[in-house]
């Protein structure tokens, strides 16, 4: 009763072209049925994310660990709130990150949980940079 072969095949990796995404913009793509936010972060957002003391976070994780080296402006997270599964809204909330309208969880510009009932940061899916303007998710 585990996922069948065609479901697994439909979950094969996808390539996303990043060149149309301007700074400060984000897009949403679907992979394996899950929404994935790809954010082209501004310098302000990156600095804000890095300025937070990691130990003070509910789910401690450094921003550097959530992005690829040399591509710090690109944040790729699965857009499913780790509380009960709603899709958080991008560019909302007190931390210029994500805000989940269902029960009020707030994530920062690195997709980390800062406030609210969600227990964990927005998960980062497996991805790699195929070129400077293209990533492969999965």
């Amino acid at each position: 009763m585990n996922p069948d072969a065609s479901t697994i095949a439909a979950g094969a990796p996808i390539e996303v072209d990043l060149s149309p995404v301007a700074e400060g913009q984000d897009i949403k793509v679907f992979w394996r049925g899950k929404p994935i936010y790809i954010s082209h972060r501004t310098k302000k957002q990156i600095d804000e994310a890095r300025a937070v003391p990691v130990a003070s976070l509910p789910d401690p994780q450094a921003d550097e660990a959530r992005v690829k080296a040399g591509h710090d402006q690109w944040l790729v997270v699965i857009g499913i709130c780790t509380h009960l599964g709603c899709i958080p809204i991008a560019h909302e909330g007190n931390y210029d990150g994500f805000f989940c309208p269902c029960h009020g969880s707030q994530y920062d510009s690195s997709g980390r949980i800062r406030q609210g009932p969600a227990p964990a940061n927005l998960p980062v899916p497996p991805y790699q940079f195929v070129s400077d303007t293209k990533i492969q998710i999965g």
């Binding site: 009763m1 585990n2 996922p3 479901t7 394996r32 009960l84 599964g85 709603c86």
Partner: peptide, 26 residues
């Protein structure tokens, strides 16, 4: 989505149970 996600709270077997319920990735 919400109710099946509940089962992910169970330690160790939670994620597997959810995948079994879903029959897929979501």
């Amino acid at each position: 989505t919400v109710i099946t996600n509940l089962f992910s709270a169970i330690p160790y077997v939670g994620e597997s149970i959810v995948t079994l319920l879903w029959g897929g990735y979501s």
